[in-house]
């Protein structure tokens, strides 16, 4: 999977994506940036990039 096109401020959209994702795993709470617990932004499999993130699921 490539870089998420929505960037780092699409909180509602990535909460919906994470809700539908069977591979979601909460990251350490100190790394959470979204208020919704289940969010790609709070997922252990997201790797931040300069402008967005890359989903690394399948590598965990």
């Amino acid at each position: 999977m490539g870089e998420y096109a929505g960037g780092k401020e699409e909180f509602a959209a990535v909460a919906l994506r994470a809700a539908a994702c069977r591979d979601f795993i909460e990251d350490d709470a100190d790394e959470w940036v979204a208020d919704e617990a289940q969010s790609c932004y709070n997922c252990r499999a997201r790797r931040w990039t300069a402008t967005s993130f890359v989903c690394m699921r399948g590598q965990l």
């Binding site: 990251d27 790394e31 252990r44 997201r46 790797r47 931040w48 990039t49 300069a50």
Partner: peptide, 11 residues
């Protein structure tokens, strides 16, 4: 956070 820097997920 930069492509030239190796990091796991958040640096």
């Amino acid at each position: 956070i930069h492509p030239a820097i190796p990091y796991t997920s958040h640096n």
